[in-house]
Design a protein around this nucleic acid. Sequence first.
DNA 1: CTCCAGGGATGAT
DNA 2: ATCATCCATGGA
Length: 301
Amino acid sequence: MSVITVPAPDFDLAKTLNSGQVFHWIAADGGFCGLIGDLPVRVQQFESTLHIALSKGHRQDAATSIRHYFALDHALGDICRSFPSDPVMNAAADYCRGLRIIRQPKWECLATFICSSMKQVAHIRQMSQALRRNFGEQRQIGNQLLHTFPDAAGLAERSESDLRACALGYRAKNLLATAGAIASGEVDLDRWSELPNDELQKNLCSLAGVGAKVANCVMLFAYERLTAFPIDVWIERVLREQYFAGKRKPTAATLKQFSTDYFGAHGGYAQQYLFHHARMTNKRRKAPRKANRRDELVSSH
DNA sequence: CTCCAGGGATGAT
DNA sequence: ATCATCCATGGA
């Protein structure tokens, strides 16, 4: 095992990997173990430097892969200055300093977000892990075992019940159908990189289990479309409560229009910051509610 | 126990 | 075009 260092100014590894954009990294020894495509690594951050542990034989272009994957080339200062200045956005931008939108492999990103529907982040992690453990190839970094994400052809030849065994539920059929479309050659995700945003979104939405929200996540996290603005239940709450307070309930079309008009050329970054900030500062998580009188009476027996 | 989660597909107004 | 319902599963 060897270690290389990569300069990473204006970067927060933990916030980036815990922000609900990627689901397979495992926290270990004050760092994270995971795969960048096929490359197993352990990443630790010491201030503005990343220490990357690599297995033998993976030395040459690893630093380039790391910089590309973590999007260390994004001009984060310029991106944040392009945000609108309002109390909600400013609080999110302050909280999320150093959080970057990373560049994920397309199929891996698409497949995990097909699994994401009506699931909490913790559940998506479990499904991703199960798919990798059951159907991926084994890799190792130090004494940490990892598994690659199974390619579309590999998943396509499994049965629906095989995928349901990974706790996918009704999502299994969708993932299987989309894996089949890719395995057959009918769909080529890499070639879709050349398409403009509207056509890319239309094509993604033609896949089983992919609607506007999942399509926008894949565009943002795998196709470098930084204007893509996924609207999930959290973001919808933020928009309704913070930007449409007191108004009649805005329709989905109204929210979509507002988000593209208001948040600007890097709306996807603004969205991710609003999402992560809303989730992390939500009162319902962690802080247990104080027991009221009735609870105390019940529990005193 | 109930409520809800990075939704999508389908069918009825 | 908007709305209702169903789809599985597990954390809080």
